[in-house]
């Protein structure tokens, strides 16, 4: 009888050890450490051949596939941060109607799915977030083309995508190609105070992105 109790105590002891010893990786991360910054680009493009850019004056919010255009303080901070990073890289900001070489869009993406999301779906409907006609680059009727699909991870919250479009060669190729993209994911990304630091991460890891 006594030994039976001891075996139970043994099992209890080992079980207690099992659960108490493990370190939870997620609880050991700060918000800054939780974030990931992913960039991708078309390596066949020479970014020095582009000189001017235009940027959207609002943000497309893609919420479980539903799209709306919004502009809050945080959105503005992100747009301004992208603007100044591109200017630091030597590109000149021009108005939408002034034949920019590059178009830049900032998109907020929300998905409440707890499973795996494939961000290639994001580009599949790109034309509905950033209608080529409404957007005013003057290339209505062209579809978008993007070769990117992000690696898949389980989703905890939203993401911010910054996309750079080749407007210069759109007429020649009959499509508006996404030639650079940056994606920010993690805790506390929608924050005006840290917007410029976050955008800087995307550009710092893309040294090829320069007009000179």
């Amino acid at each position: 009888m006594k030994s039976k109790n001891l075996i139970w105590l043994f099992i209890l002891a080992i079980a207690a050890t099992f659960t108490s010893c493990s370190k939870d990786p997620l609880s050991d991360l700060t918000a800054e450490e939780s974030r990931i910054y992913i960039t991708d680009h078309d390596s066949t493009k020479d970014f020095k051949t582009f000189q001017t850019f235009s940027i959207s004056d609002s943000v497309a919010v893609v919420n479980n596939g539903q799209v709306s255009k919004q502009l809050n303080e945080t959105d503005l901070a992100f747009i301004n941060a992208v603007k100044s990073e591109l200017q630091n890289k030597g590109y000149t900001l021009v108005a939408k109607g002034a034949n920019p070489d590059l178009g830049v869009n900032v998109t907020r993406i929300y998905n409440t799915s707890t499973g795996i999301i494939n961000y290639s779906n994001y580009y599949d409907s790109y034309g509905s977030y950033w209608d080529p006609y409404d957007y005013g680059y003057g290339y209505g009727g062209y579809g978008y083309y993007s070769p990117y699909s992000y690696a898949t991870y389980s989703v905890k919250e939203g993401a911010i995508s910054v996309d750079m479009l080749d407007i210069k060669n759109a007429a020649a190729s009959n499509k508006i190609e996404v030639i650079w993209t940056g994606l920010i994911r993690g805790s506390g990304i929608f924050n005006a105070a840290t917007a410029s630091a976050q955008v800087k991460m995307l550009f710092d890891q893309s040294p090829y992105l320069t007009s000179k």
């Binding site: 910054y37 992913i38 960039t39 991708d40 390596s43």
Partner: peptide, 12 residues
């Protein structure tokens, strides 16, 4: 990552 994809992250 695959292709030209680069990710900046804290790895655990």
């Amino acid at each position: 990552l695959e292709g030209n994809q680069v990710v900046s992250a804290v790895l655990t």
